[in-house]
Design a protein around this nucleic acid. Structure first.
Length: 383
DNA sequence: GGACGGGGTCGTGAACCATC
DNA sequence: GATGGTTCACGACCCCGTCC
C-alpha cells in the first residue's frame, strides 16, 4: 500500500457492502482522507473490501474489517492489514463456513473463461460441452466447479454479444499483464439506450433509414429519484464504460451496459439518461444482425419491442421473450389504461395509478408485469 | 452415455416500506 | 432522516428428463 496525493487513503479504493456496521462513518472517513468508494466489488488488486469482522471467512489482504479505517485514522498511519484480515483466532464471532458457498462470478473470471475458450480455438458464441469445462476446471481457470462454469457459460456468457465478450477477455488479459494498462482493442460498449420510433410503422420506416434517437425519455429519467436510498450506488449506466476502461469493473453482477441482459432489479432505478449516437445505433444494428442474421427491419422491430434495449432485443430475436420485451396486446393495454393520464403527473402518482388498475383487475394485463416495468414502458410509449 | 435444456432450491442483495 | 424488516429478483448450484 502506498500513500499518494492528499490524505491517508489517497489513491486507494474501498468497497463497503451494504449492511456493514459503521458503513456510513467509514465512507465519510475514507473520502475525507482522499480515498474513493467503489459501488461494486471489482475483484481487482487495487480494491479493498471492508466488512464486519465476523463475516470475513478467510484471510485476504484485500478483505479487511471495517475498523481498519478508524484505527488508521486514530494512528494517523496506514496500519499493517494483518490484524484486520479474516482469522478465527481474533474474531469475536465464529467463522461462518458453508459447505457449498455460492461464489459470484467476477468479470475477471468471466474473462478468464472466455479467454480459455478462445485459446482453445473454440467459438465463444456456441455452447460447449461439459467435458470442455471439466478441462477448464482441471486447469483451475476459475475456482468454480466445471458444472458451475458450464451453467454460467451457457446461461449467461454465451448470450453476451461479441463486443462484451471481447471486453471481458481484454480485461482478463490486462489483469494478467504486469503493467495493466494495455490499450483495449475491443469495441467500446455503448452505455445508453435507444429511444426508438414511436410505432411499428415508424420502426419500419426507420429501419430503412436507421432510427435516430432525438432526446431523452423524460426529464425525470435524467436525475436520480429523490427517494433513492443514501447508500444506493449511482446508476451503473453512468459509470460502466469509464469503469471498464479503468479496470474498475463490477464483479458482483457483471459488466453493466444496456447491451447486457437487463436485470429487472437494476431496471427499477437505472434508466437511460442519454441518447445513443448514430455510431452507437449503427453498432447495435450490426451486432444484432451479426448475432442473429435477421434483416435490419427485424432488428429495428426488436429494438422497439425492447424499449430500445439492444440486449433485450437480442433475446427477442432469439425467441427468448423476456418480461421487459413488450408485445402488441400489452402495449395496447398500457395505452388503453394510462395514455390519458395528465402529463404533469409525477412518477409516483403514475405508479399509484398503475397499482390501482392492476389491483382492480377489471382489465387484466396479458402477462404479469411489475409496476416499474409498466411505468417504464409507458414512458417509452408516450415518448 | 453424453449433451443439452428446463426447472427447482437457496443464498444474496437491492428496493421498498413502515416505524421511530 | 435513519433504521430495520419485508419483498422481490437474480444467479449459483444442482437435479432430472429428453434427445441423439
Amino acid at each position: 500500500m502506498k500513500e499518494e496525493g492528499n490524505g491517508l487513503f489517497a489513491g486507494m479504493e474501498f468497497y463497503i457492502p451494504p449492511g456493514v456496521l459503521g458503513r456510513s462513518d467509514a465512507r465519510a472517513m475514507i473520502q475525507a482522507q482522499g480515498g474513493t468508494i467503489a459501488s461494486h466489488v471489482t475483484g481487482l488488486e487495487n480494491q479493498i473490501v471492508l466488512m464486519d469482522r465476523h463475516k470475513i471467512d478467510h484471510r485476504n489482504e484485500r478483505k479487511l474489517a471495517v475498523e481498519y479505517i478508524s484505527d488508521c485514522i486514530k494512528q494517523n498511519n496506514l496500519l499493517p492489514p494483518h490484524a484486520y484480515m479474516g482469522d478465527g483466532e481474533w474474531s469475536p464471532m465464529p467463522v461462518v463456513t458453508k459447505s457449498h458457498p455460492k461464489k459470484k462470478y467476477t468479470d475477471l473470471e468471466r474473462g478468464a473463461m472466455l479467454a480459455f475458450v478462445v485459446d482453445k480455438d473454440r467459438d465463444y458464441n456456441k455452447p460447449l460441452s461439459r467435458k470442455f469445462w471439466d478441462l477448464a476446471a482441471a486447469q483451475q481457470i476459475t475456482d468454480h466447479s466445471s458444472e458451475s462454469m458450464h451453467e454460467h457459460y451457457r446461461k449467461q456468457l454465451v448470450n453476451k454479444i461479441p463486443a462484451e465478450k471481447n471486453q471481458l477477455i481484454d480485461l482478463y488479459r490486462r489483469s494478467q499483464s504486469d503493467d495493466g494498462a494495455a490499450p483495449s482493442a475491443v469495441l467500446p460498449i455503448p452505455t445508453v439506450a435507444v429511444p426508438p420510433p414511436r410505432s411499428p410503422t415508424a420502426v419500419q420506416k426507420a429501419a430503412a433509414n436507421v432510427p435516430r434517437p432525438v432526446k431523452t425519455l423524460s426529464p425525470r429519467l435524467t436525475t436520480p429519484p429523490p427517494h433513492r436510498p443514501r447508500t444506493t450506488p449511482p446508476p451503473r449506466h453512468e459509470t460502466s464504460l469509464p469503469r471498464l476502461e479503468s479496470g474498475l469493473v463490477d464483479s458482483v453482477s457483471q459488466v453493466s451496459s444496456p447491451l447486457e441482459v437487463p436485470s429487472r432489479k437494476r431496471l427499477r432505478t437505472e434508466l437511460p439518461s442519454q441518447v445513443a449516437s448514430t455510431q452507437q445505433v449503427d453498432i447495435w444494428f450490426e451486432e444484432l444482425q451479426a448475432a442473429t442474421g435477421v434483416p435490419r427491419v427485424a432488428a429495428a422491430h426488436a429494438l422497439y419491442a425492447s424499449s430500445g434495449n439492444p440486449r433485450v432485443a437480442l433475446m427477442y430475436l432469439r425467441n427468448q421473450l423476456p418480461r421487459d420485451c413488450w408485445q402488441e396486446d400489452e402495449d395496447a393495454w398500457i395505452l388503453r389504461n394510462f395514455n390519458d393520464l395528465p402529463n404533469d403527473l409525477g412518477e409516483d402518482e403514475i405508479k399509484t395509478h398503475i397499482r390501482r388498475v392492476l389491483r382492480e383487475d377489471q382489465d387484466p394485463l396479458p402477462r404479469r408485469q411489475t409496476v416499474q416495468l409498466i411505468w417504464q414502458r409507458l414512458q417509452f410509449l408516450k415518448y
